[in-house]
């Protein structure tokens, strides 16, 4: 890399790392000197554990629902309706265009007590449909790439000619070959839900992000500690994607001798 490249890389790195380092430094600050008291305070707060658990469950539910809808969906687009792909791709960008605040106001309006049972709208699981919509772009893209890397048609027909029905084909042949994409989509969705604030806040549910916000407004040093902790969580999720993406032994076999 030329010297100017290193300079730009340094500037970029500084842009990201200085605030992080400053936050880390601040989170360790005590009345006199440095220590972990802010972290102890956060970790001993029962709300921290409870709301982390709530968001964790929401993330899992979102991932499950999203995969259940999108795997058969993307499969059928690739297999039978390739002409719909541009449309689905366009739809998948909508959650970026329509801000979450509009989405949640719409959902609040739609999910009124007359239409939807109370057990559903009285708990944070109310947020799952909205989160599924928000995760759509990430999940769709991750799956789409996986499906494009295999010959969906031939594999499906090969499985059928050997006697497999649709379910067997999906579970035994298609799923194992798109698993890395599904996992990558799941990690992105996980990171998304663990950080989603707007919808939970407007719908008046307490989740991990609203807790971060609350702590940020009330306690200075613990808020910095919490930021570092949640950053660590996101970072773990991204590490998961890298790990899954690099796993060897998957993908389409090239035909040699061409």
């Amino acid at each position: 890399m030329p010297r100017s490249g290193w300079v730009w890389l340094g500037i970029g790195a500084a842009y990201f790392f200085i605030p992080l380092a400053a936050t880390l430094e601040f989170s360790l600050k005590e009345v006199s000197g440095y220590g972990f008291s802010a972290y102890r305070e956060i970790l001993s707060d029962p709300q921290f554990r409870d709301l982390l658990w709530v968001s964790f469950k929401l993330a899992l539910a979102t991932i499950v629902v999203s995969l259940l809808i999108l795997i058969p969906g993307v499969y059928s687009v690739h297999l039978s309706f390739p002409r719909l792909r541009p449309l689905v791709e366009f739809l998948s960008v909508l959650p970026f265009v329509v801000p979450p605040i509009i989405l949640i106001v719409g959902l609040l309006d739609f999910y009124n007590v007359d239409r939807v049972p109370l057990w559903f709208i009285e708990s944070p699981r109310f947020l799952v449909p909205g989160y599924v919509v928000l995760s759509f772009p990430f999940m769709f893209r991750a799956l789409d790439v996986s499906f494009r890397s295999i010959d969906v048609h031939t594999l499906t027909e090969a499985a059928h000619s050997l006697g497999a029905g649709w379910t067997t084909t999906l579970v035994r042949v298609i799923l194992p070959n798109i698993a890395s994409g599904a996992l990558a989509g799941a990690f992105l969705t996980f990171a998304l839900v663990m950080g989603e604030f707007t919808m939970a806040h407007i719908a008046l549910f307490n989740t991990f992000p609203t807790y971060i916000n609350y702590v940020g407004q009330t306690q200075a040093n613990p808020a910095a500690a919490l930021t570092i902790i949640s950053f660590g969580l996101t970072w773990l999720a991204l590490l998961g994607i890298l790990f899954v993406g690099r796993r060897p032994g998957r993908g389409v076999a090239p035909v040699a001798g061409r």
Binding site: T154, L155, L162
Partner: peptide, 19 residues
């Protein structure tokens, strides 16, 4: 349907299950 026909099919390429 194809999966009830007992036909053995060999395709052009890329038909082995990669997993």
């Amino acid at each position: 349907p194809a999966n009830k026909r007992d036909m053995g099919m060999v395709f052009q390429a890329y038909s082995l299950f990669p997993n």
